[in-house]
Amino acid sequence: MALMGLSLALMLMSAGLYHWVFLKGAREGWPVIGTLVRLVVKDEFEQRDRFMRENLDAMARKLGEMQAKLVQLESLGERVSGLAGINPAEFKGTPHQGGALVEGRPLSLEELQATLADLEKSTGHSNDLMTVMESRLFDQRIKNMMVPTQQPVKEGHLGSNFGWRIDPFTGRSALHTGLDFQADPGAAILAAAGGIVVTQEVHPAYGNLIEIDHGNDLITRYAHASRIYVKKGDLIKRGQKIAEVGTTGRSTGPHLHFEVLVQSVPQDPQKFLSAGSNLPVIQTAKLGNGPQQGATRR
Protein backbone atom coordinates (compact mmCIF):
# COMPACT_ATOMS: atom_id res chain seq x y z
CA MET A 1 0.00 0.00 0.00
CA ALA A 2 2.87 2.32 0.85
CA LEU A 3 4.49 1.62 -2.53
CA MET A 4 1.19 2.22 -4.35
CA GLY A 5 0.67 5.48 -2.51
CA LEU A 6 4.21 6.57 -3.29
CA SER A 7 3.81 5.66 -6.95
CA LEU A 8 0.57 7.65 -7.16
CA ALA A 9 2.20 10.63 -5.53
CA LEU A 10 5.13 10.48 -7.96
CA MET A 11 2.73 10.29 -10.91
CA LEU A 12 0.82 13.33 -9.72
CA MET A 13 4.03 15.25 -9.14
CA SER A 14 5.32 14.31 -12.58
CA ALA A 15 2.10 15.37 -14.26
CA GLY A 16 2.06 18.64 -12.38
CA LEU A 17 5.71 19.30 -13.14
CA TYR A 18 5.21 18.45 -16.81
CA HIS A 19 2.20 20.74 -17.01
CA TRP A 20 4.09 23.57 -15.29
CA VAL A 21 7.14 23.16 -17.51
CA PHE A 22 5.02 22.94 -20.66
CA LEU A 23 3.04 26.08 -19.82
CA LYS A 24 6.16 27.99 -18.80
CA GLY A 25 7.98 26.96 -21.94
CA ALA A 26 5.02 27.94 -24.09
CA ARG A 27 4.74 31.35 -22.44
CA GLU A 28 8.46 32.11 -22.58
CA GLY A 29 8.94 30.65 -26.04
CA TRP A 30 11.37 27.84 -25.28
CA PRO A 31 12.54 26.45 -28.64
CA VAL A 32 11.26 22.87 -28.49
CA ILE A 33 8.10 23.49 -26.50
CA GLY A 34 7.23 26.63 -28.50
CA THR A 35 7.50 24.67 -31.73
CA LEU A 36 5.23 21.93 -30.36
CA VAL A 37 2.67 24.49 -29.22
CA ARG A 38 2.67 26.23 -32.59
CA LEU A 39 2.13 22.92 -34.35
CA VAL A 40 -0.76 22.01 -32.09
CA VAL A 41 -2.37 25.43 -32.43
CA LYS A 42 -1.87 25.43 -36.20
CA ASP A 43 -3.51 22.01 -36.49
CA GLU A 44 -6.46 23.18 -34.42
CA PHE A 45 -6.89 26.28 -36.56
CA GLU A 46 -6.66 24.25 -39.75
CA GLN A 47 -9.32 21.85 -38.51
CA ARG A 48 -11.58 24.74 -37.51
CA ASP A 49 -11.06 26.51 -40.85
CA ARG A 50 -11.76 23.30 -42.73
CA PHE A 51 -14.95 22.76 -40.72
CA MET A 52 -16.10 26.35 -41.37
CA ARG A 53 -15.27 26.09 -45.08
CA GLU A 54 -17.23 22.86 -45.43
CA ASN A 55 -20.22 24.46 -43.73
CA LEU A 56 -19.96 27.62 -45.85
CA ASP A 57 -19.78 25.54 -49.01
CA ALA A 58 -22.87 23.58 -47.95
CA MET A 59 -24.69 26.85 -47.23
CA ALA A 60 -23.65 28.23 -50.62
CA ARG A 61 -25.02 25.17 -52.41
CA LYS A 62 -28.32 25.40 -50.53
CA LEU A 63 -28.50 29.10 -51.29
CA GLY A 64 -27.95 28.43 -54.98
CA GLU A 65 -30.79 25.88 -54.96
CA MET A 66 -33.07 28.41 -53.22
CA GLN A 67 -32.22 31.07 -55.80
CA ALA A 68 -32.94 28.69 -58.69
CA LYS A 69 -36.32 27.78 -57.18
CA LEU A 70 -37.10 31.45 -56.61
CA VAL A 71 -36.43 32.18 -60.28
CA GLN A 72 -38.89 29.43 -61.24
CA LEU A 73 -41.43 30.83 -58.76
CA GLU A 74 -41.08 34.35 -60.18
CA SER A 75 -41.53 33.03 -63.71
CA LEU A 76 -44.66 31.14 -62.66
CA GLY A 77 -45.93 34.23 -60.83
CA GLU A 78 -45.55 36.38 -63.93
CA ARG A 79 -47.55 33.87 -65.99
CA VAL A 80 -50.29 33.58 -63.37
CA SER A 81 -50.42 37.36 -62.95
CA GLY A 82 -51.66 37.60 -66.53
CA LEU A 83 -54.62 35.37 -65.61
CA ALA A 84 -55.33 37.62 -62.63
CA GLY A 85 -55.15 40.76 -64.77
CA ILE A 86 -52.07 42.10 -63.00
CA ASN A 87 -49.04 43.66 -64.62
CA PRO A 88 -45.92 42.52 -62.71
CA ALA A 89 -44.29 45.82 -63.69
CA GLU A 90 -46.60 47.47 -61.14
CA PHE A 91 -44.40 46.03 -58.41
CA LYS A 92 -41.17 47.87 -59.09
CA GLY A 93 -40.35 48.71 -55.49
CA THR A 94 -37.99 45.74 -55.23
CA PRO A 95 -36.09 44.61 -58.34
CA HIS A 96 -36.14 40.97 -59.30
CA GLN A 97 -33.32 38.94 -57.83
CA GLY A 98 -32.28 35.40 -58.51
CA GLY A 99 -30.15 33.19 -60.66
CA ALA A 100 -28.12 30.17 -59.75
CA LEU A 101 -25.25 30.79 -57.36
CA VAL A 102 -22.08 30.19 -59.40
CA GLU A 103 -19.02 29.62 -57.26
CA GLY A 104 -15.89 30.74 -59.05
CA ARG A 105 -14.10 30.99 -55.70
CA PRO A 106 -14.95 30.16 -52.08
CA LEU A 107 -17.50 32.62 -50.73
CA SER A 108 -16.96 34.45 -47.49
CA LEU A 109 -19.49 34.65 -44.71
CA GLU A 110 -20.12 38.32 -45.54
CA GLU A 111 -20.89 37.48 -49.17
CA LEU A 112 -23.30 34.76 -48.12
CA GLN A 113 -25.04 37.18 -45.76
CA ALA A 114 -25.36 39.78 -48.55
CA THR A 115 -26.81 37.17 -50.92
CA LEU A 116 -29.27 36.07 -48.26
CA ALA A 117 -30.36 39.69 -47.77
CA ASP A 118 -31.01 40.03 -51.53
CA LEU A 119 -32.91 36.75 -51.48
CA GLU A 120 -35.06 38.02 -48.60
CA LYS A 121 -35.94 41.17 -50.55
CA SER A 122 -36.86 39.17 -53.62
CA THR A 123 -38.98 36.79 -51.52
CA GLY A 124 -40.83 39.76 -50.05
CA HIS A 125 -41.52 41.08 -53.55
CA SER A 126 -42.86 37.70 -54.69
CA ASN A 127 -44.99 37.44 -51.56
CA ASP A 128 -46.57 40.85 -52.26
CA LEU A 129 -47.30 39.87 -55.86
CA MET A 130 -48.82 36.53 -54.82
CA THR A 131 -51.01 38.24 -52.22
CA VAL A 132 -52.42 40.65 -54.79
CA MET A 133 -52.95 37.83 -57.29
CA GLU A 134 -54.78 35.78 -54.67
CA SER A 135 -57.07 38.73 -53.98
CA ARG A 136 -57.77 39.33 -57.68
CA LEU A 137 -58.39 35.64 -58.42
CA PHE A 138 -60.67 35.34 -55.40
CA ASP A 139 -62.61 38.37 -56.61
CA GLN A 140 -62.93 36.83 -60.08
CA ARG A 141 -64.10 33.55 -58.58
CA ILE A 142 -66.77 35.35 -56.55
CA LYS A 143 -67.96 37.14 -59.69
CA ASN A 144 -68.11 33.84 -61.59
CA MET A 145 -70.19 32.37 -58.81
CA MET A 146 -72.67 35.23 -59.29
CA VAL A 147 -73.17 34.49 -63.00
CA PRO A 148 -76.01 32.01 -63.76
CA THR A 149 -74.07 29.16 -65.32
CA GLN A 150 -75.32 26.29 -63.12
CA GLN A 151 -77.93 23.99 -64.72
CA PRO A 152 -81.14 24.69 -62.78
CA VAL A 153 -82.50 21.16 -63.24
CA LYS A 154 -80.36 18.03 -63.36
CA GLU A 155 -83.12 15.43 -63.56
CA GLY A 156 -84.75 16.57 -66.78
CA HIS A 157 -84.26 17.62 -70.37
CA LEU A 158 -84.68 20.83 -72.33
CA GLY A 159 -88.09 21.40 -73.90
CA SER A 160 -88.90 24.80 -75.38
CA ASN A 161 -86.02 27.13 -76.22
CA PHE A 162 -85.79 30.89 -75.96
CA GLY A 163 -87.41 32.75 -78.84
CA TRP A 164 -90.58 32.86 -80.89
CA ARG A 165 -92.90 29.85 -80.78
CA ILE A 166 -96.58 28.89 -81.06
CA ASP A 167 -98.23 29.55 -77.70
CA PRO A 168 -99.77 26.26 -76.43
CA PHE A 169 -102.87 28.07 -75.07
CA THR A 170 -103.66 30.62 -77.81
CA GLY A 171 -102.14 28.90 -80.83
CA ARG A 172 -100.57 32.18 -81.88
CA SER A 173 -96.94 33.19 -82.30
CA ALA A 174 -95.48 34.49 -79.04
CA LEU A 175 -92.05 35.22 -77.60
CA HIS A 176 -90.91 32.57 -75.14
CA THR A 177 -88.69 34.52 -72.74
CA GLY A 178 -86.84 31.59 -71.18
CA LEU A 179 -86.09 27.87 -71.29
CA ASP A 180 -88.47 25.08 -70.32
CA PHE A 181 -86.89 22.08 -68.58
CA GLN A 182 -89.15 19.04 -68.62
CA ALA A 183 -88.85 17.02 -65.40
CA ASP A 184 -90.84 14.85 -63.04
CA PRO A 185 -92.87 16.57 -60.34
CA GLY A 186 -90.74 17.09 -57.25
CA ALA A 187 -87.42 17.20 -59.12
CA ALA A 188 -84.96 19.61 -57.49
CA ILE A 189 -84.70 23.15 -58.83
CA LEU A 190 -81.20 24.58 -58.22
CA ALA A 191 -80.04 28.18 -58.08
CA ALA A 192 -78.09 28.94 -61.24
CA ALA A 193 -75.83 31.32 -59.28
CA GLY A 194 -75.43 32.86 -55.86
CA GLY A 195 -77.53 35.86 -54.93
CA ILE A 196 -80.46 37.18 -52.88
CA VAL A 197 -84.10 36.20 -53.25
CA VAL A 198 -86.02 39.33 -54.28
CA THR A 199 -89.32 37.69 -55.22
CA GLN A 200 -91.16 34.69 -53.78
CA GLU A 201 -94.83 34.75 -54.67
CA VAL A 202 -97.73 33.09 -56.45
CA HIS A 203 -98.06 34.63 -59.91
CA PRO A 204 -101.14 34.18 -62.18
CA ALA A 205 -99.02 33.09 -65.14
CA TYR A 206 -95.78 31.85 -63.51
CA GLY A 207 -97.44 30.03 -60.61
CA ASN A 208 -95.09 29.57 -57.67
CA LEU A 209 -92.33 32.01 -58.62
CA ILE A 210 -88.82 32.78 -57.35
CA GLU A 211 -86.54 35.57 -58.55
CA ILE A 212 -82.90 35.83 -57.45
CA ASP A 213 -80.85 39.00 -57.80
CA HIS A 214 -77.19 38.31 -58.63
CA GLY A 215 -76.05 41.94 -58.75
CA ASN A 216 -75.04 44.02 -61.77
CA ASP A 217 -78.74 44.22 -62.85
CA LEU A 218 -78.82 40.45 -63.42
CA ILE A 219 -81.82 38.40 -62.21
CA THR A 220 -82.84 34.77 -62.71
CA ARG A 221 -86.48 33.64 -62.60
CA TYR A 222 -87.80 30.17 -61.70
CA ALA A 223 -91.50 29.49 -62.39
CA HIS A 224 -94.23 26.82 -62.05
CA ALA A 225 -92.69 25.25 -58.92
CA SER A 226 -94.72 22.86 -56.81
CA ARG A 227 -92.86 23.66 -53.59
CA ILE A 228 -90.55 26.51 -52.59
CA TYR A 229 -87.78 26.23 -50.00
CA VAL A 230 -86.68 29.87 -49.78
CA LYS A 231 -88.27 33.23 -49.02
CA LYS A 232 -87.67 36.84 -49.93
CA GLY A 233 -84.41 38.18 -48.49
CA ASP A 234 -82.65 34.80 -48.24
CA LEU A 235 -79.00 34.60 -49.28
CA ILE A 236 -78.64 31.82 -51.85
CA LYS A 237 -75.59 29.79 -52.82
CA ARG A 238 -74.87 28.59 -56.34
CA GLY A 239 -76.32 25.09 -56.78
CA GLN A 240 -78.58 25.34 -53.72
CA LYS A 241 -81.96 23.58 -53.89
CA ILE A 242 -84.54 26.37 -53.85
CA ALA A 243 -87.70 24.62 -55.05
CA GLU A 244 -89.23 21.56 -56.71
CA VAL A 245 -90.58 21.15 -60.22
CA GLY A 246 -94.34 21.49 -60.59
CA THR A 247 -97.07 22.67 -62.94
CA THR A 248 -98.55 25.67 -61.14
CA GLY A 249 -99.72 28.75 -63.01
CA ARG A 250 -100.08 28.85 -66.77
CA SER A 251 -98.59 25.44 -67.49
CA THR A 252 -99.48 22.37 -69.55
CA GLY A 253 -97.40 19.94 -67.47
CA PRO A 254 -94.61 19.61 -64.89
CA HIS A 255 -91.58 21.64 -65.92
CA LEU A 256 -89.34 24.53 -64.87
CA HIS A 257 -89.55 27.81 -66.74
CA PHE A 258 -86.14 29.45 -66.33
CA GLU A 259 -85.35 33.05 -67.33
CA VAL A 260 -82.31 35.33 -67.21
CA LEU A 261 -82.96 39.07 -67.20
CA VAL A 262 -80.32 41.79 -67.63
CA GLN A 263 -81.64 45.24 -66.76
CA SER A 264 -85.13 43.69 -66.86
CA VAL A 265 -84.63 42.56 -70.48
CA PRO A 266 -84.98 38.79 -71.08
CA GLN A 267 -81.83 37.12 -72.41
CA ASP A 268 -81.28 33.67 -73.85
CA PRO A 269 -80.38 31.58 -70.76
CA GLN A 270 -78.63 29.03 -72.94
CA LYS A 271 -75.76 31.47 -73.55
CA PHE A 272 -75.07 31.60 -69.81
CA LEU A 273 -75.48 27.87 -69.26
CA SER A 274 -73.18 27.07 -72.17
CA ALA A 275 -70.52 29.36 -70.72
CA GLY A 276 -70.60 27.32 -67.52
CA SER A 277 -70.33 23.92 -69.17
CA ASN A 278 -66.58 23.78 -68.43
CA LEU A 279 -66.89 24.99 -64.85
CA PRO A 280 -66.75 22.53 -61.94
CA VAL A 281 -70.13 21.22 -60.81
CA ILE A 282 -71.31 22.66 -57.52
CA GLN A 283 -72.85 20.19 -55.14
CA THR A 284 -76.43 20.88 -54.13
CA ALA A 285 -76.60 22.60 -50.77
CA LYS A 286 -78.39 20.49 -48.19
CA LEU A 287 -81.22 21.91 -46.15
CA GLY A 288 -81.40 20.85 -42.55
CA ASN A 289 -85.06 21.40 -41.74
CA GLY A 290 -86.88 20.95 -45.04
CA PRO A 291 -89.08 23.76 -46.42
CA GLN A 292 -88.88 27.06 -44.58
CA GLN A 293 -91.94 27.95 -42.62
CA GLY A 294 -94.26 30.24 -44.54
CA ALA A 295 -92.48 29.63 -47.85
CA THR A 296 -94.07 26.34 -48.89
CA ARG A 297 -96.39 26.50 -51.86
CA ARG A 298 -98.37 23.76 -53.56
Score class of each variant (00 low, 15 high):
Lys271Glu: 13
Leu109Val: 11
Ala89Lys: 09
Gly34Cys: 04
Phe91Cys: 02
Thr170His: 03
Leu109Ile: 09
Tyr18Pro: 00
Leu73Asn: 13
Ala68Phe: 03
Val32Lys: 10
Glu54Tyr: 05
Phe162Cys: 04
Thr284Gly: 11
Leu10Gln: 08
Gln47Gly: 07
Lys154Asn: 13
Glu90Thr: 07
Tyr18Lys: 07
Asn144Ile: 10
Ile166Asp: 07
Glu65Pro: 06
Gly85Phe: 04
Gly294Asn: 04
Val71Leu: 08
Leu109Lys: 12
Arg221Lys: 08
Arg48Cys: 03
Leu190Cys: 05
Arg221Ser: 09
Asp118Gly: 14
Lys92Ser: 15
Thr123Leu: 14
Gln283His: 13
Gly178Gln: 01
Gly290Glu: 00
Ile282Leu: 12
Ala174Cys: 07
Ala183Asp: 02
Glu54Pro: 05
Gly64Ser: 10
Glu44Tyr: 10
Arg61Tyr: 13
Val37Gly: 00
Leu235Trp: 14
Gly186Pro: 01
Gly82Trp: 15
Thr177Trp: 12
Pro148Leu: 00
Ser251Val: 06
Arg172Gln: 14
Leu17Met: 14
Ala15Ser: 11
Lys286Asn: 11
Ala68Met: 09
Val40Thr: 08
Ala114His: 09
Leu273Asp: 03
Gly156Gln: 02
Gly104Tyr: 07
His214Thr: 00
Arg136Pro: 02
Val265Thr: 11
Thr220Arg: 02
Asn216Phe: 09
Val281Tyr: 10
Glu44Leu: 08
Leu175Thr: 05
Thr149Trp: 01
Glu110Tyr: 08
Ile228Asp: 01
Arg105Glu: 10
Ile212Tyr: 01
Gln113Cys: 06
Ser81Phe: 08
Gly186Ala: 00
Arg238Pro: 07
Thr131Asp: 10
Leu256Gly: 02
Thr247Trp: 09
Thr131His: 09
Gly156Val: 05
Leu17Pro: 05
Gly34Tyr: 00
Ala114Gly: 04
Phe169Gly: 05
Ile86Arg: 01
Asp167Ser: 09
Thr170Asn: 03
Phe138Pro: 03
Asp49Arg: 15
Glu65Ile: 09
Thr296Ile: 10
Pro269Asn: 02
Met1Glu: 13
Ser274Gly: 06
Val265Gly: 05
Leu287Arg: 10
Ala100Ile: 10
Asp139His: 11
Met52Gly: 09
Tyr229Phe: 13
Gly215Pro: 03
Ala193Asn: 04
Arg297Ile: 01
Glu103Arg: 14
Tyr222Lys: 05
Arg141Val: 10
Gly207Cys: 02
Ile189Ser: 02
Thr220Ser: 10
Leu137Gly: 05
Met1Ile: 09
Lys232Thr: 07
Ser14Tyr: 10
Leu63Gly: 04
Leu6Tyr: 11
Asp57Phe: 14
Ser7Asn: 14
Asp57Lys: 14
Arg50Ala: 12
His176Gln: 01
Gln151Ala: 11
Lys24Cys: 08
Thr296Phe: 08
Ser7Tyr: 15
Gln113Leu: 09
Ala84Arg: 00
Ile236His: 01
Leu235His: 15
Asn289Cys: 07
Asp49Val: 12
Met146Asp: 03
Asp118Asn: 11
Gln113Ile: 02
Met4Lys: 15
Met66Gly: 08
Thr247Val: 10
Leu137Arg: 03
Leu17His: 12
Val102Trp: 07
Thr149Pro: 06
Gly104Phe: 06
Ile166Trp: 04
His125Pro: 00
Phe91His: 04
Gly124Ile: 05
Ile282Val: 15
Met11Gln: 15
Leu70Cys: 06
Gly156Pro: 07
Glu54Met: 12
